[in-house]
């Protein structure tokens, strides 16, 4: 065997940091936070160790789904500046390792959730992973500009899982929280995809700004903000949350709507002129943290 063949056979094993990067830790923080809020606002006590395990399982499930997403989309990621440095497109890891890691972590998170809390929470966790991987990543993402609308449901499950882990059931409040994240996802992602449109176009991903252009996308962002705000405020008039939450959600949603109007009236087509879009994207993350934080605060103060 020649030296060159030996070297070709000995590809370097991936670093543990690359496995961590597969789980998209930054995205996971929002998932964990909304899951934690779902758990904290549930009307029953939970032992801290069980609560911690439930949140850990939500985080691991989200990480597993992200790893499987990166495994499937390695070819797309290589074409986009934003994602080209990820472990698979950068060549720091082989695809099979990512697949094994994602599948293993999926089973581990679901089974641990089932044993530690209850099998309803485990089932919803399994559904959320499957939805993200099969419905969003495999089915919708490369086929339709509605990918993020339907696929957004995958990211909306954590508060439902957190709630179900405590109570063993699913009632109106977790469904409203699911609806809020579901309706928040399109404006959030479309704001991002407006200023990274060329990346998506280069990779052939049919995001709304690529297929229908910036004007239609800006209209859709403003339109989605209205039902999103309604879903955010709804727990207050329905008696599921108090005035602290209601006022906070109203103010935060009004600010979201104003920023979406700035996006609507922006005419820029190049990223350099898309400050309103960048502002809305940054605010949308803060918005979700603040609305869920207000709900927990409201519950604790009322309690």
């Amino acid at each position: 065997m020649t030296a060159s063949v030996i070297e070709a056979d000995q590809s370097l094993p991936a670093e543990w940091r690359d496995f961590l990067a597969l789980t998209k830790p930054r995205v996971m923080s929002l998932v964990v936070f909304t899951g934690l809020c779902g758990l904290l606002v549930a009307p029953a006590p939970i032992h801290p160790i069980i609560g911690f395990t439930a949140i850990l399982c939500i985080a691991l499930g989200a990480g597993a789904a992200a790893a499987l997403n990166m495994w499937y989309e390695a070819d797309l990621d290589a074409l986009m500046k934003r994602t080209a440095s990820r472990p698979l497109p950068a060549g720091r890891m082989d695809r099979q390792s990512a697949l094994h890691f994602g599948v293993g972590l999926s089973f581990f998170s679901v089974i641990l959730m089932g044993f530690a809390t209850n099998w309803l929470a485990a089932t919803v966790l399994a559904v959320s992973i499957l939805f993200y991987v099969l419905v969003y990543t495999v089915w919708l993402k490369r086929r339709t500009p509605q990918n993020i609308v339907i696929g957004g449901a995958a990211g909306a499950f954590p508060p439902v899982i957190g709630w179900a882990a405590v109570t063993g059931d699913i009632t109106l409040l977790p469904i409203l929280l699911f609806t809020l994240i579901f309706l928040w996802t399109p404006p959030h992602f479309w704001a991002l995809s407006l200023f990274v449109r060329s990346d998506y176009a280069a990779a052939g991903v049919p995001m709304l700004p690529v297929v229908s252009g910036p004007t239609v996308t800006r209209q859709q962002i403003a339109l989605y903000t209205i039902p999103m705000a309604a879903a955010a405020i709804a727990p207050w008039p329905l008696g599921l949350a108090g005035a602290i939450y209601g006022i906070a959600a109203s103010l935060l949603s009004a600010a979201f709507f104003l920023l979406s109007l700035q996006v609507l009236f922006n005419r820029a087509t190049e990223p350099a002129g898309m400050k309103p879009e960048k502002r809305l994207f940054a605010y949308s993350v803060l918005y979700l943290f603040a609305v869920f934080g207000a709900l927990v605060l409201d519950r604790w103060i009322l309690a």
Partner: peptide, 20 residues
Amino acid sequence: LKDDRILEIRRRQKSRALVM
């Protein structure tokens, strides 16, 4: 170069084993 490569492989295996 081959020795460097083997050392790098060992280093990565060791850090992964420690994390695991």
